[in-house]
Design a protein around this nucleic acid. Sequence first.
DNA 1: TTGTACGCGTTATCAA
DNA 2: TTGATAACGCGTACAA
Lengths: 339, 339
Amino acid sequence: MSITIKDIAKKLRITPTAVSKALNNREDISEELKIKVRKTAEKMGYSSNMIAKRLVTKKSNTIGVFLFSRSKYDIEENFGSQFINGIIKEANKNDYDITLFSTESDFLNKKSYISLCKERKVEGAVFTGLRINDPHIEEIKNSPFPISIIDTRLDGKNVSFISSDSESGINEAMRYLWELGHRRIAIITGHKYAQVSERRFNAYQQYLVEKNIYDKDLVFEGDFTKDSGYKYALEIIRLRNIPTAVFIISDLMALGAIRAFKKEGLSLPNDMSIIGFDNISIAEHIEPALTTIEQNGVAMGRAAIKAILDRLKGGKLKKKVFIDTKLIIRNSCARVSEI
Amino acid sequence: MSITIKDIAKKLRITPTAVSKALNNREDISEELKIKVRKTAEKMGYSSNMIAKRLVTKKSNTIGVFLFSRSKYDIEENFGSQFINGIIKEANKNDYDITLFSTESDFLNKKSYISLCKERKVEGAVFTGLRINDPHIEEIKNSPFPISIIDTRLDGKNVSFISSDSESGINEAMRYLWELGHRRIAIITGHKYAQVSERRFNAYQQYLVEKNIYDKDLVFEGDFTKDSGYKYALEIIRLRNIPTAVFIISDLMALGAIRAFKKEGLSLPNDMSIIGFDNISIAEHIEPALTTIEQNGVAMGRAAIKAILDRLKGGKLKKKVFIDTKLIIRNSCARVSEI
DNA sequence: TTGTACGCGTTATCAA
DNA sequence: TTGATAACGCGTACAA
């Protein structure tokens, strides 16, 4: 089989202990021996066995990541790929491995997320796309190891909530619309299983209430799909008193809405101003180029890992971490024409 | 610490061996004991330790996945997320874990991909986005364990090549253009470090050569970015003899090209027919809705894992696996007007 | 500075 | 059907 420290010990006529120490660059071993050991290790093509190391040190150096997706395009549309990038980089940088799970695999039906984690002795876990009606939610709340959940807030002694600071971005967006003269601003939210829906709606509502222009008839509950954007855009222009702007809480729905508006003959952005949320890669390519609130997915992924690692190092639990969002102004909003 | 089989053995006054057998549902143990063991295991909150199991069985049940990305949007734009989905599902279905690595992590600079794999005793590895000028390419070729590479062909005794059957899709696309009356068909390819560029170009060229309408002046080498699509679209309409159609080998570049064409006042699709490649999620939302060749990313991910698993089970190495592509006809191509 | 002895949690082999 | 023993590859006290 493969070379072990025993083999190289035998070759050098020393003990495995000495080899182990040399390879781990311990203080209590001579430079001379270290060099010799390293050289023959190299020569023999030795590769350390992390499995054995993890067993003996009782430390897996592993973080579990759960990616929940439903439709074919779900991950890309939900920023999952950016999260993943941030997660891996931050983890690897700190010498942690990522083991990835996805829903829909029979795996997850047989066993709970937490048991999967326990068996692998992961030191922490990250959840993405978790729904608040997930059957295993209670277990997650009581997790014995640190957990970071992206975009879903859950109370639990070990869980951190990682999300965009949507409030700030939305405030900025609403002020922008306000300054453009908009007074009737509709919203298309997401389904109620995603907390981001609620949070984004609240930020929207709060601003409008303060300005005294909130109108509940301008609230439409979509479900994050393009189709729902399309559908509610249609409803919006059927209104007796049509709004001059819509805030659509995901770019994807905004895409659907834009299509609907165009199909109905509206001239964009003059007949309707639109602000999205996410800044997905094609937002700048559609017609009109979409003004939207940008999320920093990579930073969110990194923050998820950081929260876990901090806690593992004995730090205090960060109940929540918010990542800045910012308004990206393009061409989908116009000044309200004075009549 | 956590409960082990020893603990439950002690409690039941039997040996760990018996517990192990019971828990693994072995034949040589009484039903009675099995039930008793399972019950107390449950009661004590026992969770098996895969690390120990993997050490003793000398089987990691793990596949390493390397995701190479460069830009912020790289993974989503390169279909990485779909691959990942297919990979995880197929792996988990077969009781395999995925451990994920990404480039740019200091990790990969310190150690080669193969050593990372060896240390973790992964049974196989999948590469996505690998460049043929990668410094570790030789090592990959000589890998002792099975490797699946998506979209990059490499000769090696253990490496499988997983890719889209772009030939078939492109043929279909070219025939479609031909039947629409197009005789001057340009192409915008990708950079030469990606083999998909070459393969897609070859398929394009072959068809046109057969029809005797190939013109090397209509070939433009982009680099998969939106900007390069934009840039070469501009060059195309500066041609003395403007083509009536362009085949752009990635939807993303097609997006850039469409923007350029529009900006220059072309009416699409009448002034220029466009066919993309990938069918990314927004292809249907741009104006005009993009006719493109669809890749099945999920199937590719699954195939990558299947190739590894088959080989692990003693099957023959599949040098290459091609996944069907198909032409998705939308509104970006028009019949050539007869003058 | 090096070596001895042991243990991590589990499974495998063989004996009882 | 169950148990005793050893082993997987490595790290860590502690002794030499």
